[in-house]
């Protein structure tokens, strides 16, 4: 593939929904982006800015408009179906119900996740060696899940489920980790725990990560880069240095300058808390 600048390259990524109707909406508008290996990017932006759409396009849920290119590790994956993209992309959703299967045991969920990007065959899905691996992946969470491999996931709490979803997204070490407001539905204490787990796993596995959040302080504190989206475009892109001394208020000013719109605090577009 010749010169391989970074881990992920997005070129001319546009996504139009309901084309040709009065509801036509340009959810992504010519996005260009380069991620280096081990980048940990926080993405913020108002409701409907296109953050989730961006992750969906990268994960292959739907293809970008013609001409758009998504290149991971030098491989063009634009147009691949979701299950094929999954070999490169691990994902945690806002809702723990989406990332885990409730009526199956913890062990079965992890066995599914372990085979991401590998051919599934007629070997036993789970064996002693794999169970040991699952236990050692769950132990650092400190939630006691390593002793509950046989518990149905539906019997776990929301926070436990989201922690499990995080392990499932990373256990096979995909090239890219996508987090879409993955702590937003958790109570503050559990949210803090899952956030620290995220930090731990991302650091340990040196994962390239994109994390959507509505919490500006979080976005400033975590990650080495911060991106702000507005109406399908990237309007602010700061590196570690640029964001290190910023406050939430500076961020709001940056948003207003870049978008040409007043920051509407009442509508809680971007929460300060």
């Amino acid at each position: 593939m010749g010169e391989n600048k970074g881990l992920l390259q997005l070129r001319e990524i546009t996504k139009v929904f309901s084309r040709g109707t009065i509801d036509e909406i340009r959810a992504l508008d010519n996005i260009e982006m380069d991620l280096n290996a081990e980048d940990y990017i926080a993405i913020i932006g108002s409701n409907g800015a296109g953050k989730t759409t961006l992750l969906n396009v990268i994960a292959g849920v739907y293809p970008p408009e013609r001409g758009g290119k998504i290149i991971i590790n030098g491989r063009d994956i634009s147009g691949l179906s979701e299950y094929k993209c999954a070999q490169y992309v691990g994902r945690v959703y806002q809702d723990p119900h989406i990332g885990t299967a409730a009526k199956m045991a913890v062990e079965d969920n992890l066995a599914m996740a372990l085979l991401r990007g590998k051919p599934r065959g007629l070997r036993a899905a789970s064996n002693k060696q794999r169970r040991d691996l699952f236990r050692s992946a769950l132990t650092p969470l400190g939630l006691g899940l390593e002793n509950r491999l046989n518990a149905l996931v539906g019997t776990l709490s929301g926070g436990q489920r989201q922690a499990l979803a995080l392990v499932m997204a990373t256990i096979s070490k995909p090239a890219l980790l996508l987090l879409d407001e993955h702590i937003a539905t958790l109570d503050p204490k559990t949210a803090q725990i899952v956030l620290e787990l995220t930090e731990m796993i991302v650091k340990r596995e040196k994962m390239t990560t994109m994390m959507i959040t509505h919490n500006m302080e979080l976005a400033l504190r975590y990650g080495n880069r911060l991106i702000m989206m507005h109406k399908g475009r990237i309007v602010v892109d700061m590196n570690q240095e640029q964001k290190s001394n910023l406050t939430v208020n500076d961020l709001i000013v940056a948003f207003e300058r870049a978008s040409g719109e007043a920051f509407d605090d009442d509508s809680i577009l971007l929460r300060r808390d």
Partner: peptide, 17 residues
């Protein structure tokens, strides 16, 4: 296992490849 998981959470199964 993938077959059983499909009935439980199809979106998750696709997301896991």
């Amino acid at each position: 296992l993938a077959l059983r998981a499909t009935g439980d959470n199809e979106q998750m199964v696709r997301g896991l490849g």
